[in-house]
Design a protein around this nucleic acid. Structure first.
Lengths: 175, 175
DNA sequence: GCGACGACTCAACGACCGTAGAGCGACTGC
DNA sequence: GCAGTCGCTCTACGGTCGTTGAGTCGTCGC
């Protein structure tokens, strides 16, 4: 319950503007109880992001299926309810919070890019993988953070249908 | 001088963690002088973002040249020095600051998407334009905010060479 | 010389936040 | 019945921040 309200506020207001008092108030408990549970504000934030980067099949997918797998992984993470709020919390804070940035950069992007670039192979493999993940992340931002017109409420199938050819063109033909 | 240090700190630490005292300290002046110049912290932030969203040829480009024009606009904005720091300031704060988000969403993304979708035409025109702009924004984040391996220090020509076919595939054939 | 004026600084206020420690009430084992 | 423990709350401290108003210093017109 506390975690739920914390994720809501962290995602809506960001880490700095979210106060422990506000989280406790929404959860109907005393701020000191939040401290007792999570140690400090950083602990609460780390707990709120837990589960944001787990699973995914793209890292082990064969070359030809990488675009579809990457899209499926991301949409599954954000459209399903269990990890969605944690993922949104990470997505909304990775530009301004050091730990969120480290997770997004090292544990999400760099880790996946490393695997994908080995599968992609050839020259520019790392750049191709980085661009592919960046496009995916940009789509997530446009859809779940900015809620751009046409994208925020588009059907996942339409997104997959339009983006997959683009990502395939990005990878190019195998050597 | 004050603005320069402000942009540096806003881009590095984010709006909330940047204090007027720190900006004034780096600029070698008194915090009260910053207040006198910019009214309040929001005014300083708005001034720091000024020039972040200007110009660009993509909005009036013919359909076939949209991918190249969009890439050129973004790389020109971030690789050249005059508006670069303002653009980075906007890029690093649009997820956590309301005014920065409004500018990024309404004045940058929505405005361009509106023009592009009219040029693109056909079904899914708006979704295609939103996805195109999201991919571009994602690339900017991966390069200038996360500095992903392979992308952060890639040559602009290589980025343009790999991304243009992907964006062209995203637009598809004209009706 | 001197008063006015602008640029800039000093010192302080009020508010808010993270955090700590004492305290309170309910429950449990004996 | 009672001491102990656990979950939780109350109160307060220390620090930092945005902001303000008075004050200082140099400059310029007369």
């Amino acid at each position: 319950m506390i975690l739920q309200q914390a994720r809501c506020l962290f995602a809506e207001e960001g880490f700095e503007r979210t106060t422990i008092r506000a989280v406790a108030g929404l959860a109907g408990v005393d701020p000191a109880l939040v401290m007792q549970y999570f140690g400090n504000k950083e602990g609460l934030f780390a707990a709120a992001m837990e589960g944001a980067h787990t699973g995914g099949t793209a890292r082990t997918a064969p070359r030809a299926e990488i675009p579809a797998a990457v899209l499926r992984d991301l949409l599954a993470k954000f459209e399903s309810t269990p990890d969605r709020e944690a993922a949104v919390t990470l997505l909304r804070n990775f530009l301004t919070h050091h730990e969120a940035k480290r997770i997004m950069r090292d544990e999400v992007m760099c880790a996946v890019i490393g695997d994908l670039s080995r599968t992609i192979g050839g020259p520019d493999a790392e750049l191709k993988a980085a661009l592919l993940m960046s496009c995916i992340a940009g789509m997530a931002l446009g859809r779940y953070a900015l809620e751009l017109p046409g994208l925020g409420d588009a059907a996942p199938e339409d997104i997959e249908r339009l983006m997959r050819p683009a990502l395939e063109a990005l990878l190019g033909e195998p050597e």
